[in-house]
Design a protein around this nucleic acid. Structure first.
Lengths: 208, 208
DNA sequence: GTCTATAGGGAGATAGAC
DNA sequence: GTCTATCTCCCTATAGAC
């Protein structure tokens, strides 16, 4: 992460901005948005509580940067999971539910930021861009599953339900499993099954 | 709400405990857990910031009381929705998704408390009891939908996925729709359809 | 760019009067 | 049971030295 020439005591004189985002995400994972503070992130990164304000104008900007980074990572994970799932479109699409669940369980909270905070305003273009990127990835995968004549709006609706229900499953699971369970695999597999059930029922309904 | 004999200036000398819970829920609905504070609730209820501590030992106890009240109301709404849905078991079960979505959209946040706060410890027996009550209601409805030989564990699993995915749909919807939409009906109907798709897919999978 | 120091505010919780 | 007053802590954000 650090260039070979920098001695790198903490993040001093290194890439503090990136370090703050990383520690911010870690803190969010441990305490949720409620326990988040600029001061704590600064301590974790090994700098004074004033240092972050040289890189982010205020608390919300740091939160937004963390949210954007989380969204980007999730998007990558979903795409990778689809890739690993093989050639079958249904397998590929359903696999995203497993990857999402796995991410939430492994990073505990963290993700609640995106859904508990209001970043929908025009002040956070990066988040909106990442959000579109995530949606676009799922839209592509969904298009391969749904009938060829499915409209864009219907595809978007389907993706929306898929994403939101997967999110609900993963987050509620995170709440219930007090400690990180060893069998994340089986829980992620259950999410995939639920996603497949959803697709099956959806396609079945179209036939009638 | 107040007895006929009490003059009732604010909640003074009235049922302050109930008033605090009511105002607490209202505040949660407006600001979410992040904006919740005992002081604000006190002001809303028309009492000083110290008064709540005569009824609740600390902030968390008040939050827990609000959560329990919300859970109880939701349970009633789900049961009522099933009742109104008619005799068909599938209709009755799926109707709970609509009622849940309607509640979340009408009360905005509020419900995020239950899923963003950790009440799973043994310190909140009321919440756990209400939670069991909610689950039990859904278990009964699910039993009528699933095959007669379905095990308790499988029924519970099915209910869990139904509840969590419905929750995810409703909450993400709440985030996206900036202002309370006029067409809550259509959004609730979409939730019912998603629930039906889930059931259909689930039953279909059992056949194979 | 990072530090120390601090202003300013909000919120949890308690003490004692009434 | 409710009030006023207050203590303490933590957090956001800024000012100015280095």
């Amino acid at each position: 992460m650090s260039s070979p020439t920098t001695p790198r005591r903490g993040y001093h004189h290194g890439d503090l901005r990136a370090g703050l985002i990383r520690e911010g995400i870690a803190l969010l994972g441990e305490t949720g948005v409620a326990g988040f503070s600029v001061a704590k992130v600064a301590v974790r990164a090994g700098v004074s509580s004033a240092a972050p304000y040289r890189h982010f104008p205020d608390r919300e900007a740091l939160l937004a940067a963390c949210a954007a980074a989380i969204l980007a990572e999730i998007t990558d994970l979903l795409a990778a999971a689809a890739e690993q799932a093989g050639p079958d479109p249904l397998d590929r699409f359903a696999a995203t539910a497993g990857a999402y669940t796995r991410y939430v369980l492994e990073h505990r909270a963290g993700i609640d930021l995106i859904y508990s905070y209001d970043f929908s305003g025009p002040h956070h273009p990066t988040i909106q861009e990442q959000s579109r990127h995530l949606t676009g990835t799922l839209m592509d995968l969904a298009s391969a599953v749904l009938p060829a004549d499915t409209s864009w709006a219907d595809t978007a609706d389907f993706v929306y339900v898929h994403l939101s229900t997967t999110h609900g499953y993963a987050t509620l699971l995170m709440k219930v499993t007090r400690r990180p369970p060893e069998d994340i695999d089986s829980l992620a597999a259950r999410a995939v099954t639920a996603a497949r059930d959803h697709i099956t029922g959806y396609l079945q309904r179209l036939l009638r």
